[in-house]
């Protein structure tokens, strides 16, 4: 018998999903481009490869300057949110854990808002201020720490429900602080609000470069802990008796997941439920082992958000639907299903 782990077929499926999402995300929109030409143009971008796609100069500009950064950002943000969701679920041993439900996103949001409203005037045109990810990370870590402490108020066990309730309270508190900041700085209201709804729309290569180092680093850290996450499912005491440092692994995962979420939130705004939808669907299809769940969450999360962004662009016609609204439409019913199955398993 083979142990649980990443099956090559699923890995291949994940890679195919990403490729399909990329080509679709590049080809469709207000101007449609031929998918075959898009694929050839992508190959042409690889150094040393020279191909002719047959796209006009204008089409190539749409592809590389407008759509490609947006698609790449969608991949990075989707991968981060899904991976962080899976990592939180394992680290907290809580199927309902998600960057948004734990208050992490609200904390990161407050950090970003603070930077956007408090920065010196005149900097608005320069894209994201460089301090944004750091502020988002500080906010995210404070939020997850608060949720963790409050979640223990009902006892040391931190039941799934207690932790999520604490996350709701922390989110509400941090959102209130954010609203207060905005009230005091009405001039930034529009900018912050459009960011809050979640967007990949204004993504340029600058945003991608700001978020990429954080994403690569935190994803690598989380992926190294995938076997530890499987051992953690038996509880801290037994994990410790099996030779692990459960607290060390848990803190590493929480810090990495929070940093990754903060980086994603700082460029994309609040896009909810990706960390619930993607890992839970994968669990149903491929089993509970984190050894396969983490890498597959990364791939399918990337594909999922890129396709969702495409949906948000084309479904709304001239006025794009904010992507956070689309994920919430899909995610809220999904969350209720997860909640119901979790409760029936717990009783």
């Amino acid at each position: 018998m083979r142990p649980a782990g990443l099956r090559p077929a699923w890995l291949a499926a994940g890679v195919v999903a990403v490729l399909v999402a990329v080509v679709a995300g590049l080809a469709f929109g207000s101007v449609s481009l031929p998918p075959g030409g898009v694929a050839i143009e992508l190959l042409d971008l690889i150094p040393g490869v020279r191909l002719h796609s047959g796209l006009t100069e204008r089409e190539v500009a749409i592809l590389t300057e407008l759509r490609l950064p947006r698609v790449v950002l969608g991949l990075v943000v989707g991968a981060m949110l899904a991976l962080a969701g899976a990592a939180y679920q394992g680290a907290f041993r809580n199927p309902l854990a998600d960057p948004h439900l734990l208050g992490v996103a609200a904390g990161a949001g407050l950090g970003v808002t603070a930077v956007l409203v408090l920065r010196p005037a005149g900097g608005a045109a320069a894209g994201l201020p460089i301090g944004v990810p750091a502020a988002a990370f500080a906010g995210a870590l404070i939020a997850v720490a608060l949720t963790w402490v409050l979640g223990a108020a009902g006892g040391r066990d931190r039941s799934p429900a207690a932790l999520i309730l604490a996350g709701v309270a922390v989110s509400a508190f941090l959102s209130a602080m954010q609203t207060y900041l905005l009230q005091r700085h009405v001039e930034s209201l529009r900018e912050v609000y459009s960011w809050l709804l979640g967007r990949l729309g204004t993504a340029g290569w600058h945003d991608v470069l700001v978020v990429l180092p954080y994403a690569v680093l935190t994803a690598a850290i989380m992926l190294t802990q995938r076997r530890e996450l499987d051992v953690l499912t038996v509880g801290d005491e037994e994990a410790s008796s099996l030779g692990l440092h459960p607290q060390r692994s848990r803190y590493l995962l929480i810090v990495a997941a929070s940093l990754g979420t903060a980086a994603a939130v700082s460029v994309s705004g609040l896009i909810g439920f990706v960390g619930i939808i993607v890992p839970h669907t994968l669990r149903l299809l491929t089993g509970p082992s984190y050894r396969s769940l983490l890498p597959l969450s990364l791939l399918f999360g990337a594909a999922f958000l890129t396709l969702t962004d495409l949906l948000a662009r084309v479904a709304g016609g001239a006025a794009e639907i904010p992507i956070g609204v689309v994920t919430a439409f899909l995610g809220a019913p999904f969350f209720i299903v997860v909640l119901r199955t979790t409760r029936s398993a717990a009783t």
Partner: peptide
């Protein structure tokens, strides 16, 4: 150690559970 009431990870197979002993 076999503790008094070990946590039973939902959906884990017997094979994978025993493999945890090789951690």
């Amino acid at each position: 150690v076999v503790v008094q009431s070990p946590v039973v990870p939902p959906a884990m197979t017997v094979f994978d559970y025993v493999l945890l002993g090789r951690t």
